[in-house]
Nucleic acid binder design. Sequence first.
DNA 1: CATGAATGAGTCTTCATTCAT
DNA 2: AATGAATGAAGACTCATTCAT
Lengths: 211, 211, 211, 211
Amino acid sequence: MATATPRQRRKDARPQELLDAALQLFVEKGFAATRSEEIAARAGVAKGTLYRYYPSKDELFKAMVRDNLSVHIAESAAQAAQYEGSIAELLSQMMQAWWAKVGHGNAGVVCKIMMVEARNFPELARFYVEEVIRPSQALIGGLIERGIRTGEFRAVPVEATVHMLIAPMLHMLLHEHSFGEHDICHQTMAAEELLDAQMALLLHGLLANPA
Amino acid sequence: MATATPRQRRKDARPQELLDAALQLFVEKGFAATRSEEIAARAGVAKGTLYRYYPSKDELFKAMVRDNLSVHIAESAAQAAQYEGSIAELLSQMMQAWWAKVGHGNAGVVCKIMMVEARNFPELARFYVEEVIRPSQALIGGLIERGIRTGEFRAVPVEATVHMLIAPMLHMLLHEHSFGEHDICHQTMAAEELLDAQMALLLHGLLANPA
Amino acid sequence: MATATPRQRRKDARPQELLDAALQLFVEKGFAATRSEEIAARAGVAKGTLYRYYPSKDELFKAMVRDNLSVHIAESAAQAAQYEGSIAELLSQMMQAWWAKVGHGNAGVVCKIMMVEARNFPELARFYVEEVIRPSQALIGGLIERGIRTGEFRAVPVEATVHMLIAPMLHMLLHEHSFGEHDICHQTMAAEELLDAQMALLLHGLLANPA
Amino acid sequence: MATATPRQRRKDARPQELLDAALQLFVEKGFAATRSEEIAARAGVAKGTLYRYYPSKDELFKAMVRDNLSVHIAESAAQAAQYEGSIAELLSQMMQAWWAKVGHGNAGVVCKIMMVEARNFPELARFYVEEVIRPSQALIGGLIERGIRTGEFRAVPVEATVHMLIAPMLHMLLHEHSFGEHDICHQTMAAEELLDAQMALLLHGLLANPA
DNA sequence: CATGAATGAGTCTTCATTCAT
DNA sequence: AATGAATGAAGACTCATTCAT
């Protein structure tokens, strides 16, 4: 009958609270510019407490990546494996789903931060590539290949196509978080519409009379 | 009839030399990781001298951004206005040209750094949006519209299409400068091929049998 | 008729267990490098428990020193008082005995640590001087004087002779614990042999033909 | 006609000033307990300045060891090689000279610190062993052997004899710097007298009627 | 009494910036 | 004007100590 004491309950919640605080601050100020003490303060604990849960700022960041990104990739991969039907349809859904869960929420910022700070933290960059980039590319690349095999897609080059699917979303993300703040520059179209339009464009092509 | 002494000539060239040195180093190591002493050293002057020309590292950065942008857009716009023929062809050429001049060269890094530091320099970000982003979007958007008017293109939504053209290039740029270093993650295809493949893909679409 | 419960017995043993753990760790890593949590862990208790028995790391250290010294001197003094026979013989035995009990065992390290930390704990140093150094010198000095009185020894200066007896042992001790670790530097002769040889040397002198 | 400016003159003197300040403080408080800022302060500069001259506290310590030792050994070795006459005499002189130059001066403290900190700096300890301990032992051992060859000394075991010569000096040194401060414990005899007495004792032996 | 979560003062080190020369 | 020695604020991390449970 382990009655969780308030203290114990608090302790269990700490990691997530710290992760949330860190994410918020990284969003606001970037990784490098955020002092570990600030993260602790925002999570309502003292400096030292942060280090009880994460042995360094880097590890905290990695945990944040795992918590916010690695999750969705695995999830999407599982869905994709079971899926039967139009790959184009599936891709559209996945893009929208990704945007809803990641791009729109705070998780998206992790992507931005990673791109922004990658050079300054090579180890983190490596981690991110293995944990997020490669799996994502593998997932989408696999779907493209599947579509080609089933005859749904033309025999397009896979790598380039993966880029064409990923790039617009990341671009929107980066743009949003770089220039979207402070009223510097806003998109006129809603992101979701934009994504739909882009997907349609990519599927059907731009030319009126393709050769 | 002040004949410029060598010393005077040197002095006049200083600001540009410092800007060039700064760009190089920002490219190599990013803004935060570049020490002001290094910039001075690469420009062949002492630490203190840097501060005679730019009152702070931040101001130097801003000057560097201003110095490296708004160059290519006007040029491209002029070319585009004169051009007659296939818009698709023109867009392909412009992409390749932009990549050759900006993406591949050092100027490209300014774009990346700009995204990285946008939040820290809102004023500069605004400048960048007005001076670079909007003109670029206007230029490409105009071409799309022209293509639609002439019947070369389908009646696609312009804004989304502009994104689809810009995003892959910026994505490549960022990827290159974020994960391309330190052998963290390299593209397997050459950038130029990738761009061609993406352009073709966008023009002709992904579906084997578009409705 | 308070029968000591296991708990009570455990509690009574605590101080000594903590002292032992502390000694082990101080031997292994030195005073400063030993974290109080480690001491507690090695003693099989939690960090906080340590502080129920010793109010601070410093106090624990002092207790440890007190616990490990002043034991052997009294013993040796008693033996010496009863002894009848060759003082040279007695001194040899005492040296060997001291080395066996103190120098070789953990207690020896306390001497080393004491020298190292003396300045940081003047009060403790005073205690050590009164409790260990002076009695030792008095004991050995007394034996020298006895030897001189009985005609066994020449009329040598007592203080210098005491030093000549003590120094080699402490030197070996310090050397062992300073440079003996990590294969930095080892004695080639066994300590016991060395002591015997040194004793012989001191007794008979170095000169072939003493005047 | 390079007129050294006050600033330049100051700069040239800095390394030594810092070394001196460090030595003083290490003597007073030990290596670990001395904050780098204190060293700087005692040298009359700001914290950062220290790091212009020594890249870390460890390197500063190493420099200090190098600066204070390995000097006298070579010197003594040279003298010994040229010397002709009584080895006993030579040894006596060398002991006194070493004490005057090293034991009594600050250099002696380096020996003490080295013993104290050896475990924390294995690399440095190795350096010290190679640079100081081994040469010293070789020098003295060689003289003993020479004395034995010439018939001046008995056929004593060399290693033990070396110890007997070195130990009392180091012991005095350590004692002085561990318990000599704060009036904790002072020698009653002057060090020089003590050394002489010890030397005589070692040469002639303790026994009144050696077998 | 025992625990271990939480604390925060303390330490090394970096680097943008200043200013005496 | 140019130099580069000096500065000191700032930040990541450690660990002795406290105290709620």
